[in-house]
């Protein structure tokens, strides 16, 4: 099975979920197809992804040595029976897993940074996001009644609600904020889900003062599995386990490291390149996370003194 097939497509790198159960036969249904990614769901509803080589390593993803998937004869809803290295389906290429690099798991270290470092990181990020409103839509004027304006208004309200619920450590408000936020935004990873993912770059670490929200969000997603798209649910689920794409971890860690400023700028720019507004929405969430972490540390410090 691990033998190299001359006509096979090489798997460049893969997450442990692909490699650890290599021998396990999988029955997967095609969930969604993009230019450079194919999402597949197993019978338990877990999402797996094939990505083109140009994308970076990400949770539950196997990167194939292909430029894109435009020529693959595949459609949503199609079933694929596969064992690692064996055929995916009729007319589909074989995969060669023999040299697949295991995706290294990198953990964002933002929550371990000092408050001064968080403040500096927030200031850098704030400057970078100055011209990049949430969801790619600036806050609309009060008189604007267009559909786009309503969406933009709803997104800002939901982000505010999340912020208030977290800094007040208010479970009930947090559930309401999840109600208002999750699944909001036009794309396949809705803007507020991206925003939450950014917050989780801080909150998913057990040292974070916001870590309490992780179990609450995990429970919420379990209770409301159809609240958002399958791709977005998988992204949030991975983020709850502190599992992010390489670019996101690099940008988060660059912000709190003492490395060169231009290196930080580089990774910010790389993250901003994700999707249309996904990258900036995630970074906006990260900025909110950095600020909330500082606020909560102050609160915890004061409450201990009292």
């Amino acid at each position: 099975m691990t033998q190299k097939d001359a006509g096979a497509i090489r798997v460049v790198s893969a997450d442990g979920v692909w490699l650890d159960d290599a021998h396990k036969p999988r029955r997967l249904v095609v969930d969604s197809i993009y230019h450079r990614a194919i999402n597949l769901q197993d019978e338990q509803g877990e999402l797996f992804t094939f990505a083109a080589r140009a994308l970076d390593d990400a949770p539950r993803t196997a990167r194939l040595d292909v430029h894109d998937f435009t020529t693959w004869p595949i459609h949503p809803g199609q079933y694929l029976n596969m064992t690692r290295g064996q055929t995916l389906g009729e007319q589909l290429p074989m995969l060669d897993w023999s040299a697949a690099r295991r995706r290294p798991r990198r953990i964002p270290a933002v929550a371990q940074a000092s408050s001064e470092v968080l403040e500096r990181a927030a200031s850098v990020l704030c400057r970078a996001l100055e011209q990049r409103p949430l969801g790619g839509a600036a806050k609309p004027s009060p008189g604007d009644t267009s559909i786009a304006a309503h969406f933009a208004r709803s997104m800002y309200q939901a982000a505010d609600a999340l912020h208030l619920a977290v800094i007040n450590r208010d479970s009930a408000r947090l559930q309401q904020a999840f109600d208002a936020a999750i699944g909001l935004g036009p794309g396949s990873t809705p803007s507020l889900d991206d925003f939450l993912t950014g917050i989780l770059l801080v909150a998913s670490h057990s040292d974070s003062s916001m870590h309490f929200m992780v179990d609450q969000l995990r429970g919420y997603l379990r209770r409301h599995p159809a609240k958002t798209t399958s791709v977005s649910r998988a992204m949030l689920t991975a983020a709850l386990n502190a599992d992010f794409s390489t670019t996101l971890v690099r940008v988060a860690n660059a912000l709190v490291s003492s490395g060169a400023e231009n290196e930080t700028d580089f990774w910010i720019n790389a993250a901003l390149g994700i999707g249309h507004s996904s990258g900036s929405d995630i970074l906006t969430g990260l900025l909110a996370g950095l600020e909330m972490e500082q606020e909560l540390r102050g609160y915890l410090c004061l409450s201990q003194q009292w």
Partner: peptide, 21 residues
Amino acid sequence: EQAFVAMGTEMNKAVLDNLNL
């Protein structure tokens, strides 16, 4: 006058509902 294209998530539908759309 206006057109909007979005995935059919609950929240996106809620926004359209608020607009009676």
